[in-house]
């Protein structure tokens, strides 16, 4: 079965000043799949992820060469970056709910896009929380501060906030690295239910996590993609010696 290609990068290089953080990345990411990026710290996987919704724009001194095609349009070309970010949402490593109520956290994105209707917002907030498996826990305190939630709840709130924008792609940058195992399990369950509707790209430090949830896995090392393949192949029969060394824990 040939899946539609959502992201396609061609010879992507990225520099922080003089330092080359990404070296000629070529990768096709399929629609409604879970793609995992693994690799040791500083290998460029988060940097690459942040290219996909142009979050690197916020950092001074970043230069990008090559193409990142999103639905066949170059996102560094003549596109509206705000529109891109509404279509490509992001969940961060550290849960970062805004210091406002649970309700307002979810309504924030849609309101920024001009949604004002109260009933429409109410429905959207509920739907998003239900999808993020958080509704039952917070339905009685929607107007309380989001900062009063536990870390795992905060992260699911951030996922709900992203879902509320109804994006096509959700980028997740080590979304469970700050959470305990139980909260992590909940988020992983959530991801497998979300992949029906969204394309998910996740950076993770946990090989087990990549193995459990992803369809495809890319192994990054020193700014290069060493290997990109179906997850079972990466974990059982990698082509490259370095991939094997990494997943068997010989370095990293």
């Amino acid at each position: 079965m040939d899946k539609k290609i959502k992201f396609n990068t061609k010879n992507l290089d990225l520099f922080y000043g003089d330092f080359q953080a990404l070296k000629s990345i070529n990768m096709e990411i399929g629609e409604k799949e879970v793609t995992a990026f693994i690799g040791p710290s500083g290998c460029g996987k988060s940097t690459f992820l942040r290219c996909l919704n142009r979050m690197n724009d916020l950092i001074d001194g970043v230069t990008i060469k090559g193409e990142i095609l999103f639905d066949e349009k170059d996102i560094n070309g003549d596109i509206d970056v705000i529109n891109l970010r509404t279509r490509v949402g992001m969940v961060f490593q550290k849960p970062n709910p805004f210091p406002m109520s649970i309700y307002e956290n979810i309504a924030y994105g849609p309101k920024c896009q001009g949604m004002k209707d109260k009933t429409q917002l109410d429905t959207l907030v509920k739907e998003s929380l239900v999808k993020a498996a958080l509704w039952e826990e917070v339905k009685d305190r929607l107007n309380k501060s989001a900062l009063g939630l536990s870390g795992g709840q905060q992260q699911r709130l951030c996922i709900a906030r992203t879902i509320a924008m109804n994006p096509e792609v959700i980028l997740m940058d080590e979304p469970t690295s700050a959470l305990d195992p139980i909260a992590t399990a909940k988020i992983e369950d959530l991801m497998s239910s979300l992949k029906k509707d969204f394309t998910i790209i996740i950076v993770t430090h946990s090989m087990q996590q990549a193995g459990r949830i992803s369809d495809k896995t890319a192994f990054f090392l020193m700014g290069e993609v060493i290997e990109f393949n179906e997850t079972p192949i990466i974990f059982t029969n990698p082509n490259d010696k370095r991939t094997e060394d990494y997943i068997t824990g010989r370095f990293g």
Partner: peptide
């Protein structure tokens, strides 16, 4: 103000 707030906002398509 933590930069995480700003990133969260930009990532949701806020100007």
């Amino acid at each position: 103000v933590p930069k995480e707030y700003r990133e969260g906002s930009y990532a949701l398509g806020a100007s």
